[in-house]
């Protein structure tokens, strides 16, 4: 794509590049339109609220964490472990009669501990992020199975713990439910950190040009550590919200977020010309996945077909975006 080619760009090429960049947005709008016509309940306030609270919030927070990690050129396969650790410690502490604030704090610390472990493995022992977090994922699964005698869920529906859960998941401020407020706070913080701060510049530099980042005097190990710890903390927040919403701890349930979050983040990268992850792109990816899941359910697709539908849709979005970009080169 030399300059001369750009100046000679025809109308068709411009449309092509527009579609390549905004295929996610176009698909998202088209899908919303389709479901709005196909199902009378899709556009109702109750349904949109349900999508937001049940499908978007938790996945979005995990995906935000992964966005930071993927921006830095790494990957975190252990997000599910961070989610589960926070959830497990929080629920176990509540079951033992400790206070809600204490439980949340220690739960988040448990998630941070997973992040610290990742950080040590990646920055001190120089293990590639993929393998390091894969190892942590295995260890995390064993830890949970050992701690729950093979994966027994812990349910705390009523009583003291139930009240604590309600205080987190069921309260709202000015009509906005607490989980949504938490999500908004996370979005603002991650956006400012990643796209508007010196720290974010460093993270982007490490992802785009690790060698240059190193020779420019960036403190790569320290920055990377913060990246993985930050991701784990966000996953910990999800873990707390998850256990408060379902009022229980189900071992190994956090893993369900991993592939969706990776998918959402990478779908989001199609928004940027350099295919870099962005907060906005990631959120769009999450919305796309959530709306498709909900819409297919509403128009009566069987649960099994939903998975095929999501796979095909994601495939098509990627194919259009990557294919058009390749055609231009």
């Amino acid at each position: 794509m030399s300059v001369s080619q750009d100046t000679r760009a025809t109308g068709a090429q411009k449309i092509g590049s527009f579609i390549a960049s905004y295929s996610v947005v176009i698909t998202f709008l088209a899908i919303c339109l389709f479901f709005a016509m196909a199902s009378p309940t899709f556009l109702t306030g109750a349904n949109l609220y349900n999508v937001l609270v049940n499908n978007v919030v938790m996945l979005a927070i995990v995906a935000l964490g992964l966005t930071i990690v993927i921006s830095s050129g790494g990957i975190d396969l252990s997000v599910g472990v961070s989610v589960d650790m926070a959830s497990m410690v929080f629920v176990m502490l509540l079951a033992a009669g400790y206070g809600g604030v204490f439980g949340v704090t220690v739960g988040l610390l448990a998630a941070v501990a997973v992040g610290v472990l990742n950080a040590i493995l990646i920055t001190r022992l120089k293990i590639s992020p993929f393998l390091a977090t894969l190892g942590v994922l295995f260890i995390g699964q064993s830890t949970q199975q050992l701690a729950t005698s093979g994966g027994q869920p812990i349910y705390l529906i009523t009583g003291y713990a139930g009240a604590q859960f309600n205080a987190i998941a069921r309260t709202s401020l000015l009509g906005v439910p607490m989980p949504v407020l938490v999500l908004v706070a996370c979005i603002v913080v991650v956006y400012l950190l990643l796209h508007r701060s010196v720290f974010g510049r460093g993270v982007q530099a490490m992802g785009a040009q690790p060698g240059v980042a190193w020779y420019s005097g960036l403190r790569v190990p320290r920055q990377l550590s913060l990246v993985y710890i930050g991701c784990a903390l966000l996953c910990g927040i999800t873990g707390i919200l998850l256990s408060a919403t379902v009022k229980s701890y189900v071992p190994l349930s956090g893993n369900a977020f991993l592939l969706d979050a990776i998918g959402a983040t990478f779908i989001g990268t199609t928004l940027s010309a350099e295919r870099r992850p962005t907060v906005i792109g990631t959120l769009l990816g999450v919305l796309l996945l959530a709306v498709v899941k909900n819409g297919l359910l509403l128009i009566g697709w069987n649960f099994y077909w939903q998975q095929v539908g999501i796979g095909v849709l994601v495939f098509l979005v990627l194919a259009v975006s990557f294919g058009l970009r390749r055609a231009r080169q």
Partner: peptide, 24 residues
């Protein structure tokens, strides 16, 4: 190869399709 999608991403989507097809 044909569309130039990142392998991680392409095979992730295909994984969903295959798993869903098996369930169906």
């Amino acid at each position: 190869v044909g569309l130039g999608i990142l392998p991680l991403l392409a095979t992730l989507a295909v994984m969903n399709i295959a798993a869903g097809a098996e369930l169906t």
